[in-house]
C-alpha cells in the first residue's frame, strides 16, 4: 500500500532514494523507528512528581486528578503504571463504543460478507483502510475472533495533551470530551446506545465536573518539555 500511495511516494524518494518495488519493509521500519524516537519522554511533570519525588512538580489539581486516575476513573488498568516506570498502555485491544454504532445494526451481514471476501483472498489492509464500515471492525478484521470485535489498541498517554483529536477515528476534539465520554461509560450523550461488544473494562464512572477537570489537569502533566518544544 505504501508503494502505491501518492503521499508516501515522493517522501520515500526524498528520504531513502527509492520508489516502487524498491521500497521494502526495512524502509518502513526505519521510518517508523525515526518517528518513535521523537516520542521518547520521561521528564514530564508527572515523572518528576511520581518517580522523582518532587512535590512541587505537579499542580494541586493534577495531584487530585492522579487519585481519580488511579481509583474512581479506573484509567490505570489499561493505561498502566508500574512501580518504577510508566508506559501508560497495556497494549491490549478494546471496543470502547466509539464509532461502532455505524455498523452495529447490520453486523451479522457485514461480518459474513467480510469473511467471505477474506476467504476469497481479499486484501484486509486495503479493505479496512478504504472502507469506513469495515475499518470499524477493528482487531477482529485481523484475528477473526469475536472477542476483538470493534477493538482498537490502547495508546500511551504521554504527551496526550498535544495529540488531539482523540480516539481511533478522531471523533473527540478535547481531553475534556474524552474524560466525559469515559465517565458516561463510553457515551457522548447520556442516552447513546452501547454496543454488545463493548469492552468489559468500560462502565459508567459517575465522575463529578471537578473530578473530570482534575483528571484533565493530570493528563496535561504528562507532556514532556522536549516534546512540547519540538512541536
Amino acid at each position: 500500500m505504501v508503494r502505491d500511495d501518492p503521499d508516501y511516494q515522493p517522501r520515500f524518494k526524498e528520504v531513502f532514494g527509492v520508489s516502487g518495488d524498491a521500497i521494502t519493509i526495512e524502509h518502513v521500519k526505519q521510518a517508523i523507528a525515526a518517528f518513535e524516537r521523537t516520542l521518547i519522554s520521561g521528564d514530564s511533570p508527572f515523572d518528576r512528581w511520581y518517580f522523582g519525588r518532587d512535590r512541587k512538580a505537579m499542580s494541586e489539581a493534577a495531584i487530585r486528578g492522579f487519585k481519580v486516575y488511579m481509583e474512581q476513573g479506573r484509567c490505570v488498568s489499561c493505561h498502566t503504571i508500574a512501580e518504577d516506570h510508566a508506559l501508560f498502555t497495556d497494549n491490549r485491544f478494546n471496543n470502547l463504543n466509539v464509532g461502532f454504532e455505524r455498523i452495529a445494526g447490520r453486523l451479522p451481514k457485514l461480518t459474513a460478507a467480510f469473511e467471505k471476501s477474506k476467504r476469497a483472498g481479499g486484501n484486509v489492509d486495503v479493505a479496512v483502510l478504504s472502507n469506513a464500515n469495515l475499518s470499524e471492525l477493528g482487531r477482529y478484521a485481523v484475528n477473526d475472533q469475536w472477542r476483538s470485535m470493534g477493538a482498537f489498541k490502547t495508546p500511551t498517554l504521554r504527551n496526550v495533551a498535544r495529540t488531539a483529536p482523540y480516539m481511533h477515528d478522531g471523533s473527540l476534539k478535547t481531553l475534556k470530551d474524552v474524560v466525559s465520554f469515559y465517565s458516561k461509560g463510553g457515551r457522548v450523550k447520556d442516552k447513546d446506545p452501547i454496543n454488545a461488544y463493548q469492552s468489559s473494562g468500560i462502565r459508567p464512572l459517575g465522575l463529578s465536573d471537578k473530578q473530570q477537570a482534575d483528571l484533565v489537569a493530570f493528563l496535561e502533566a504528562l507532556t514532556s518539555p522536549a516534546y512540547a518544544k519540538s512541536k
Binding site: L107, P108, T111, M149, Y197, S200, R203
Partner: peptide
C-alpha cells in the same frame, strides 16, 4: 446489575454472528 446484563448481551451479540 449491569455487569451480568452485559455478559448476556455480549453473548447474544456474538451468537448472532454465527455463520
Amino acid at each position: 446489575v449491569r455487569n451480568w446484563d452485559r455478559g448476556l448481551i455480549r453473548t447474544v451479540g456474538e451468537a448472532n454472528l454465527m455463520d
